[in-house]
């Protein structure tokens, strides 16, 4: 049984048009189960594009993504949606909670979409997730009644709802203050420590340094990979 939760092979993402543009240019990487992987890089380097490819939100122009041993290159859009629903959890820079729903209802959304649990089981899990993120008192509040950090924690709870193998986070602390940023990163660290793979795109080098591995992207290619605990040892240099 492999320990690799996610593998990318020769990923390329091109934007076709009058002026063709390559966002991701031949990336190979693998993320192990329970690994906390940080993707860094300057603006426009292609790190978010890479993340969307890894989370199956976008389809590569070339190459393939293998999630939990399952190749996704030949899946239809509906099948990709199913993989996203059950195996990937998304956290974005903005919380993207549904405004008319309470925090609990937002957390229940992926579970209801998957339809694998009874309503009472879903509510129990939803409340448990909110409780573990310190939001039990806010379960019945709407997003506009929550602070930025609380909203982002609700978004994390929503991402965890279906017990996905992989959590994909695109600058989850980008719109938060320092205290909330620390809180969110601690939560993501804990999630990885509990065995789920976490892939985070961040601009913050201090936070990236707390990841198990850091991949630095420049011009759509991996410029360097740094592993935590080995200091700032450069394992691999982009060509």
């Amino acid at each position: 049984m492999t320990d690799i939760a996610l593998q990318a092979i020769g990923l390329v993402r091109r934007i076709e048009g009058v002026v063709a543009h390559t966002l991701v240019n031949g990336i190979d990487l693998a993320a192990n189960k329970g690994e906390f992987l940080a993707i860094t890089g300057p603006s426009g380097s292609g790190k978010s594009s890479l993340l969307y490819l890894l989370g199956l939100l976008d389809a590569p122009s070339e190459g393939e993504v293998i999630i939990c041993g399952q190749s996704t290159s030949k899946l239809s859009e509906s099948e990709r949606a199913d993989v996203r629903l059950t195996k990937c959890g998304f956290v974005f820079q903005f919380h993207f909670l549904l405004a008319e729903f309470t925090a609990l209802d937002n957390v229940l959304l992926p579970m209801r979409a998957a339809g694998r649990m009874t309503e009472s089981e879903m509510r129990e899990r939803g409340l448990s997730l909110l409780d573990s993120l310190g939001l039990s008192e806010h379960a019945n509040k709407h997003p506009n009644q929550l602070s930025g950090g609380q909203r982002q924690r609700v978004a994390i709870a929503r991402a965890l709802a279906n017990r996905p193998e992989i959590i994909v986070a695109d600058e989850p602390t980008g719109a938060l203050d320092t205290a909330s940023t620390e809180q969110v990163f601690s939560i993501l660290r804990d999630i990885a420590d509990e065995g789920q793979t976490v892939i985070v795109v961040t601009h913050d080098p201090a936070l990236a340094a707390r990841a198990d591995r850091r991949i630095h992207i420049v011009d759509g290619k991996i410029a360097e990979t740094t592993e935590r605990g080995v200091g700032e040892l450069i394992l691999e240099t982009g060509k």
């Binding site: 989370g55 939100l57 509906s78 993989v83 629903l85 992926p110 979409a113």
Partner: peptide, 10 residues
Amino acid sequence: AIMKSLGMRE
């Protein structure tokens, strides 16, 4: 967009 990204089918 968010519902689709969470995995709800079109």
